[in-house]
Design a protein around this nucleic acid. Structure first.
Length: 217
DNA sequence: GTAGGGATACACT
DNA sequence: GTGTATCCCTACT
């Protein structure tokens, strides 16, 4: 089993590195011995005290305390009173940074996702942060799960077809809209946001060389 | 474009 | 302790 899932070390690194490297990997939730899973195709990084759009910007509160804890745990919160959003805590304990999982391409347990979401096209089942949690069946009870040992985990194997990762401005926020901390898998039909001729690619998105990723900081 | 819905944070008593 | 503005959204018209 060791090596199958990403370990705590992976999440203890800089949040932008973690966010970029999550693209293309499989997120797995084990329920009653079955796997419900999808390939991560869209994430956003939130940088705690350095980031006005982060729940942790003004220091720890009862809700955001989990972000200040050890890396590799989930931070699930309720948005607009009805949508749950799934985040992964990154960086060493004491640093409050997290990656919001915004969209998946379903790979396993698609029938189970359809039971929760309705009978719709596969690429729509987990497109958008609220849809991700609903497709997987996650809610506030799943706040604080340990990805290194719990029923929710991320496959350590790199994506078999990585494609290209693009970065661009985050969406759905008011503060710090200029920071290009959203990462998407180019060409994926499961990426959220307004549908465009290009099939969901943000026109502002740009291809990401590893050097360019460091320049974003 | 906008209704819908509840937890949260913070300013006030 | 209470009031209320805000919120990292979705589904519908």
């Amino acid at each position: 089993m060791r090596g199958r899932r990403l370990s705590r070390d992976f999440f203890a690194r800089h949040v932008l590195d973690v966010a970029r490297e999550l693209i293309g990997r499989r997120l797995v939730f084990e329920r009653r011995g079955r796997e419900v899973a999808g390939r991560i195709v869209e994430v956003e990084a939130y940088r705690g005290p350095h980031d006005p759009a982060s729940h942790a910007f003004r220091g720890p509160t009862e809700r955001s305390a989990i972000m200040f804890g050890p890396p590799g745990h989930t931070y699930v919160y309720l948005s607009y009173g009805m949508h749950h959003c799934l985040n992964v805590v990154t960086e060493p304990e004491g640093e409050a940074a997290a990656v919001l999982i915004r969209a998946l391409e379903p790979t396993d347990g698609i029938a189970s996702m359809r039971r929760r979401r309705g009978n719709m096209a596969v690429e729509r089942l987990a497109r958008g942060p609220g849809c991700v949690t609903r497709a997987l069946g996650l809610d506030l009870r799943h706040n604080g799960l340990d990805l290194a040992s719990g029923p929710l985990w991320i496959d350590a194997r790199p994506a078999c077809a990585p494609g290209r990762t693009l970065s661009g401005p985050r969406i759905g926020i008011r503060a710090a809209v200029d920071r290009p901390w959203r990462f998407v898998l180019e060409g994926s039909p499961a990426v959220s946001g307004p549908r465009r001729r290009t099939g969901g690619m943000p026109p502002e998105g740009r291809a990401l060389a590893s050097r360019a990723a460091r320049d974003l900081r």
